[in-house]
């Protein structure tokens, strides 16, 4: 069976650190960074990139549209 793998790109400059993406990620891929962006927000990042399935849940609930999602079958 083909396995779906995903990958996200987070525009950390525009992330406001609301964390809504993290609670909507079904695999625990995305988490909040321990450091802040230039606006002082703890930004979201793919903490466990291997777990990403490219479902785009994070991007869909992101109010600031900072996440781009890629997905492929392996």
């Amino acid at each position: 069976m083909a396995k779906i793998r995903g990958s996200i790109v987070v525009n950390i400059d525009r992330c406001k650190g609301c964390e809504v993406c993290t609670v909507n990620c079904p695999t625990g891929t995305i988490a909040m960074a321990k450091e802040v962006n230039h606006k002082g927000y703890f930004y979201a990042f793919p903490a466990n990139p291997d777990l990403c399935i490219g479902c785009a849940n994070c991007a869909m609930v992101c109010p600031d549209g900072v996440i781009t999602v890629y997905k492929t079958k392996i």
Partner: peptide, 30 residues
Amino acid sequence: MAEVTGIKEIIKPENLAYKRTRIMTDNVLS
């Protein structure tokens, strides 16, 4: 633009699954 990415090999135009629409301007939401 500063960004962080997941697995680089997957990030190819043909694999794009979700992107902020071009109809949204570049202005940062207030």
